[in-house]
Amino acid sequence: MINLTLYKREFKRSIKILIIFAAIITMYVSIIISMYDPELMKTLDDFVKAMPQLMSAVGMKANTTSLLGFMVSYLYGFILLIFPMIFCILRGNGLIAKYTENGAIVSLIAAPVKRRTVACTQIAVLVSGITILNLYTTILELVCAAVNFPGALDISKLLIINLGLFCLHLFIGSICFIFSCFFSDTKYSIGFGAGIPAFMYILQMLANAGGRAENAKYFTFFTLFNPDNIISSSNNSYINIFILLVSAIALYISSITIFCRKDLYI
């Protein structure tokens, strides 16, 4: 299914980016978790319970005042979405399209290795990177929370949220990868692979701004990952995570097919 030699080479090439992004994530996660103030949040929470309408008008819901809710508001809207997304874009493009464009893919194809194996190996490299980033984030969050506020974190909910985040990134990765297989030109591979997720993210920000723009949420896949709903145990949120996972798998399989059928002018 995969070629170990190629896997090792490509994985090594992921490591540098992974270390940089892990460092950025470490900085943000540790600082933000340490900024959580249970006393202040408790006061706010009491306000919310006393007058829910008033507080929800200013964007406060009962559960945002928990440690997990606090983390969701400050980490899951930007940092933990964007950096793994950039990882997907860089590696997604670098694993296929870059080699097709500069011709280096010739040494992978002119060998007794199936194209399918090449594609599967590169997917494995991408998915490994995404897994490592998400796993690292989860462990970091658990450690920071345990050190600063022992017992305050709803661990099982956090795990579900991070599972959702993982599926979201698998899906973003699959978008980047399919364009990397489709185009032989990195200009287009990056253009679509970065452009579509970025555009979707902007729609998501618009939708969050509320008002009439809220309808934008129907046009962006980021809606499918909603940590607030996971905290409030809304049923839909589990289905949405599942949709992300299935879509990602479908896109990865399509990428393999595209790559196997593709004419390579090398």
């Binding site: 500069n102 011709g103 280096a104 040494s107 090398i266």
Partner: peptide, 11 residues
């Protein structure tokens, strides 16, 4: 196979 233009992994 020897390609017309050698463009292997240049890293």
């Amino acid at each position: 196979y020897i390609p017309g233009e050698i463009s292997y992994f240049d890293d």
